[in-house]
Design a protein around this nucleic acid. Sequence first.
DNA 1: TGCTTACCACTTTTT
DNA 2: GTGGTAAGCA
Length: 810
Amino acid sequence: MLIEPADFVGRLQASIPLQFGARPPNPRQLECIEAPLQAPLFIVAGPGTGKTTVLVLRALRMVFVEGLLPEQLLITTFTRKAAEELRSRLLTWGMQLQESLVAQPPAHWQAQHRVRSNALDLNRFVTGTLDSVCEDLLSRAREPGEITPALIDGFVADALLLRHAVYPSGAYADGAIDPDLAAYLAQFNWQQEAPTNVGELVKLVRLVSDRLTHDLADVTHFAGSSAHSNARHRLADVHDRYRRHLAAEYRLDFSTLEHTFFTRLAAGRLDRVLHGIAAVLVDEYQDTNPLQEQIYFTLADRLGASLTIVGDDDQSLYRFRGATVEIFRDFVARWTAAGGATPSVKFLIDNYRSTPEIVAFFNDFIESDPSFAGARVTPPKPRIVPQRSSVQLPVFGLFRPTREDLADAICGIVRDVFRGNGHRVVANGQTYLIERAASGGDVGDSVLLSHSVEEFKETRGQTPPEARLPALLRVRLGPTINVYNPRGRSLRDVPEVQQLLGLMLECIDPDQPNGAAGGIQASMRLRRDSQRYLPIWRDAARALIATNPEPRSPHRLRDFVDGWQRRVPQSAAVGAWPQEWPALDLFFKLLVWLPELRASPEGQVYLEAVARAIAASATVSNYRSMIVFGQTPHGQQSVSSFISSVLQPLAESAVDIDEEVMPDVPRSAFPIMTIHQAKGLEFPLVFVDVGSDYKREHPLNRFKRHPTQPDGVHNLEDDLAHCTPVGASRTSRDGITRAFDDLRRLYYVAYSRPETVLILVGLNKCLEVARPLPHVATWYRQDGSWAWLLQPPGQRRRPAMPNSLPLTLI
DNA sequence: TGCTTACCACTTTTT
DNA sequence: GTGGTAAGCA
C-alpha cells in the first residue's frame, strides 16, 4: 500500500484541488471511489455529477491504495473523444499524486515504497474504446504464424458486403432487388420505404446484419421464422457469406471485431494477454450493446476481475448502433442472473454544473411524463441536487412568429452578452441581466443545440433551398461574429471550398482551344452529382479570378492559373515544367489566394477534409494523385483519375469532415451542434432549438417531436426480439413508446448542458393552445396531454395560453 | 360541421 | 412527388 486509505483523500485535495472546486469529494463520490473491489459497483450518475472524475479517482485509488499496477486495470468508454479525456485525466492526476508522494512521503514509507512508487508506469493503464482495446488485445494474442486480422472501416466493409455477399446470394440480380427481401427490409427503413437501389439495399442489410451480431442473435432461429420466410433466409445467407468472407480474408469490421474478441475470450484464447487484469471499469455503460455486455461479463468472470459500471439511463442516445439501455437499467438483475455476486448500487446526484433553476427544469422534465418511468432504473435515481448557487436567472423561453425574428432575437442576445455590456431582460416585472464571464468570456461560451445543424432544407421542387435557423444565424452574426458549424453544409456547397476545387479543376483541366468546356472532364462519363457540381465550382473559381484577389505579387491568381493551364512555369528560375506534379502541392499553392479558408476554424476543418481526400486517392489511384505533364495518354489519364477519385467523391458528399482536427471549439466563434455532439460537454449559455422548423402540426415531422409510429430501429428490435436473448427486455416497452423514450432522453441531455443560462427557442407555434404542436421537448406527454397546460378545476374552457410554464418568456 | 383548396415537409448519431 | 393538416367558406 503506497498511501493509507485515510491519507488518499487528503492527498487528492492537496494535489488536484481544482477538480472539486477546492472542496473535498462529497460523501457519495467518496463512497464510489472507496467501495470495496470484491462486489461489482454499479453507479448511476446524473448529468454534471462528476462520473468520469469518480471513475478516474477510483482507478487511481486501486493503484495507490489497493496496490494494483496500472496495467492491471482495463478502463473503457464509448467514444474516442471520451477515451482520450479519460486517459489524460488518469495521467495528469496520477502524476500529481506521484509528485505529492515524492514531495511529502507518507510517514509509514520505507525505501521499498519509494521504489514501487517510482516504478509505477501510469502509461500502462489499458484504456480506450472497447473496440480499440479489442483490436489491440487480439493482435497481441496472436500465435506464431497466425495472421493478424486487419480492421476495415465502414466504407470498405460495405463494399465487401455488396460484392462478396449481396451479389453472390442473388439478393440483387438483373438490376432488381429480391422483392420479398425489399418488402421485409422496408419496415427498418425510416418512413418504411422499400429499398430501390443497391446503395439503399446495402445500408439496410448492413443494419440487420450488424444487429444480428450485436444482439448475439440465433441466426438459424431468425431464418426459420414463418413470416417473411424467403427474405429471412436470404438475409441469413447474406449475413453468413459476409462473415465467412471476412474470416477467409482475415478482415474484421467493427461488429465482427467485438464478436471475434468475445468468442476467443470465452474459449480462453486470450488468457495469456489478459493475465493479471484485476479490475474492469466501464464508463457510459448505458450505451452498451448485448455483445459488449457479454464481453464485460465474461471478462469479469474469467479473470475474477473487479467490475465498476458507470452510466446514466436517462442519457442513452445510441440505440441506432445497438446500444441497449435496458442492459443498464437491468444491470443488477442481469448480473445476478448470470451468477454474479450482488452488486453495490450507488447514485451520484450532486450536480456541480448548473444553477438550481436549470437543475429543477431538467428534473421536472424527466419526470413530466409518467409513462417514461418504466424506462428508468428502478428505483429511479433520485432528483438531481444542485450544488451551485443561484444567480437569480430563470430558464428562459424565446419564441417568435417567424424564423427570421427568432434569429434576430438570438443574435441580439449573443451580441449584447459577448460584444456589449450584457443583455437585459424585463419579464414578470423583474429585470434580469445576462452577462459574459467577467474573466474572458467569449462567444464560444454559448452554443445552439439543435436536432439538426443543417443550414438549408433541401426542397425537392425547383424552389431554392430554405434557410434553417443555423444559416440565418450565420448571416446575421457575421461578419463580426463567426459561426462554427462545420457540419452544417456539405463540403461541395461551401463557397470557399467551391472556389478551391474550381481552381484546381481549372488548373489541371482547362477548356479546349476551341472553347469546349473542361477538355478532359467533358470526355469523361461522370455521375450526376459531378455533372452538376463541377461546372458550379469552375464558375466560382472564375468569379474569384475575375476579382483579382490579393496577393498580386510575385504573380496574380490569373497568371498562376494560366501558367498551370499552359504548363509554363511562372518563375524563370524554374526551367521546364516538371514531369509530374503532386496535386497536393497545387492545393497548397492555391491557398495563398484563399485566406478565409486558412484563417477560419471552419475553413481548417474543410481544408483537412479536402487534403485527406487527395491523400486517400493517392493510395488507390494509379497516378497517386500526381498530375503528369503533357498531352500524352498519361497526362490525360492522371487528370481524369484525379477528377474521378478526388472531385467526384467530393461532389457526391462522400467525404466526411473530421472535427477532431479542431481539438477545441474556437472561443471566438458561435458554435452550433447537434445534441448528440454536445453529450458530455457543458456551456455557460445554451440555446436549445425546440421548434424553429415547425410551422404546423405536420405528420412528416412528427417523428422528431411526437411520433405516431416507431422508427425503423425500433421495428428491427421488435422483429429480432424472438431470436435474441436480450429481445424481451427491450420489447417490454412497445416500439412507439421507445420512440418517445428516445426523444425524452435527447432533450434531457440538451437541458442538462448549460451552466448558467438555458434558453429554449422556437416559433410561437410551439406555445399555441388552440392548435397545439405536440413536442416532447415542450413537455408534451406520450398520451398527448401537455404538462405546461393545467386544466383549472371546474372550468370547461381551455386556457388560451399555457398556464404552467416552467420558463420565463422573453 | 362538412367540404374544398392551399400549403407544407420529408434526421440524428459512431466504432 | 405525395399525402395529410390548416384554413377558408358555406
